[in-house]
Design a protein around this nucleic acid. Structure first.
Lengths: 342, 342
DNA sequence: CTTACAATTGTAAGCGGTTACAAAAGATAA
DNA sequence: TTATCTTTTGTAACCGCTTACAATTGTAAG
């Protein structure tokens, strides 16, 4: 069933049917009713794809995210989708699984699908291909908003937090507790948050006049398994750290898993502060200190920026890097009670 | 930049350009190269929307899910998106947030967007509007696959688990530990899993020759807050239950939150078995007994069924209700050590 | 050098809508 | 009644691609 068939049935032209569908132009009330009746009767649903082609406009925005299983990102998507729903936009979802080639092909698809806008957490800060594609999108008039991970050398809107400051506060809290041997499970250094959080660690160490020891710096990839292994390695050092800073929620979980296995209690045998709140642990009063931020808000804000871009008539050159708040929540895991280790 | 412009630049017809893009028909190698060069040079990306209109075919499948923040559903989406990616399908994501009217409008959009298929976890088992829309989709040749929640009176493929059996096992494990006063935080009864899990509870109680007490049956909605409140209510009864069965992951969390607040330890002061594994608790060796199932697998299987439907030439009438395995994992929280209560 | 057939390319009609413009029909005022 | 303005409706081009069919060119055999 298409518009022409409906038109024929009612005995009008397709232009008239189009008018009643879109509430545009003027249509006699009687005609309108007849058309609506036919649409209803035949369950006619206008093709959005034909419409898109004709108007050269879609209502679909692309959301490109590394890992939907990470609660932070599902929160972001939740925020995006709330605002999108309220504004009649639909979401095309892409999960890159931290794989650059997949990210690239999704960006290509965004171009091909003529998406209205793109919200992306890019895998890497310096991926040339990704950067080029994002520029092409912008040039094609498709606004792009970064979430959580910034990209260098390019003028793109985004919403982030101050990762360096957050990590600094976390590590600093450990130092305040008297720790001098502080390890870190890093995130991937190709990502801005991974690097910035590490920089925050370094800065805090420096300000605390503590030596940064290479063997205390564990390379991670924001994944549970890797953090688990690295933690075990850190603790099997001859002179292991007394405190560990973990770079994101999954890293924290992997770390806690290892500690649990080694029968070490946080806040007692060893100290831990992690980036990202872990909701369930809070609910069961598991005393983990964290750097917390609002994922849903971050998603909402990203979508709001996108909406603003879509509404602006003339392209403003000023681009927005919005920094959302974070806060440190100390629950005791930054402390330590063993006397022989510190 | 469109196909005609490329054609002009190269000095061929748009048909020829189309042929090289699609690797269809035959094109002289020399021509092909010239066309490819122009495409490359001008960064031409064929419009997927024009293509869709022309071929009357898209590669977009709709995924309609209640709550992306629930790890079970993000797992499902992960599974779907993996298989989709491998098969060159894209995902249009819709989060209903358990709101029927939103679900309805999303189904309408699925129709309008001419989606290739739909995977949905419907909010309710008996929503007439939703059922009608799903039937319309099927009639329009759009395969539909249900995930996790079945719908009554309609022949639609789906992948589920045996909720009743799962709940039965859980409650039964509690009974085996000697519990006679077992409460349940129900899920929403409009949903099949909510009802089935409750039925499993009833059956286990019946088989255990235990009295089902109304005040032990707490209505829930699969949300944390509600479960939290209900748990507190259960425990403030004059004769509170000694064990609680919780109907899904969020329900379990809400329950644990209340227990924590009341300073009750599971496996000691009170017993709990919950539906759904909670990964992080497992990692930190928090002894929670659960009914576990594989969310990613469920997503993969749903997408596989959809793919099969899309590939079948003639419409088979046999529809598939796939039941995936679940298993009970006892970690001690089904036990109780207080002597005065049981 | 034809002829016959295969390979290559072009023409033009869709796909299902929207919309500028023109035409027709009504309404109002003189 | 006529002229004028408004409202309603229709015509047809267009959005950017695909594809059936026709036309052209190339090639090998006769």
């Amino acid at each position: 069933m298409n518009i022409k068939e409906i038109a024929e049935i009612v005995g009008v032209s397709s232009a008239t049917v189009s008018r009643v569908i879109n509430n545009s132009g003027s249509v006699k009330e009687e005609t309108r009713q007849k058309v609506l009746a036919a649409i209803e009767k035949y369950n006619y649903v206008p093709s959005q794809v034909a419409r898109s082609l004709s108007t050269n406009d879609t209502s679909i925005i692309g959301v490109i995210i590394p890992d939907i299983e990470n609660p932070f990102f599902s929160g972001v998507i939740r925020g995006i989708s709330e605002v999108a729903e309220q504004n009649k936009y639909n979401i095309m979802f892409f999960g890159t699984n931290e794989t650059p080639s997949i990210e690239h092909s999704y960006l290509q698809i965004a171009l091909a699908e003529r998406l209205k806008g793109v919200i992306i957490t890019p895998i890497s800060e310096n991926d040339k291909h990704t950067r080029d594609m994002l520029i092409r999108l912008k040039q094609a008039g498709v606004p792009v908003v970064l979430v959580d991970r910034d990209i260098s050398d390019v003028e793109i809107d985004g919403v982030f937090i101050d990762n360096k400051a957050g990590a600094y506060q976390g590590v600093n809290a450990l130092i305040d507790e008297g720790h001098r041997k502080i390890g870190i499970i890093k995130g991937p250094s190709r990502s801005k948050p991974g690097r910035d959080r590490f920089l925050g660690y370094l800065k805090a160490m420096e300000d605390g006049e503590l030596m940064v020891r290479d063997e205390y710096i564990a390379k991670g990839n924001f994944k549970i398994d890797m953090a688990y292994e690295r933690t075990k390695e850190l603790l099997s050092l001859d002179d292991p750290p007394t405190a560990i800073f973990t770079s994101n929620n999954f890293t924290t979980i992997g770390c806690l898993k290892a500690l649990t296995e080694l029968d070490l209690t946080i806040g007692k045998d060893i100290s831990v502060i992690g980036f990202d709140e872990i909701q369930i642990l809070k609910d069961i009063d598991y005393k983990l200190s964290v750097i917390e931020r609002d994922a849903i808000l971050q998603g909402r804000e990203a979508m709001n920026i996108l909406l603003a871009r879509l509404e602006e008539t003339e392209r403003t050159d000023k681009y927005i890097k919005k920094i959302l708040p974070h806060r440190i929540i100390l629950r005791g895991s930054e402390k330590i009670r063993t006397t022989n280790n510190i």
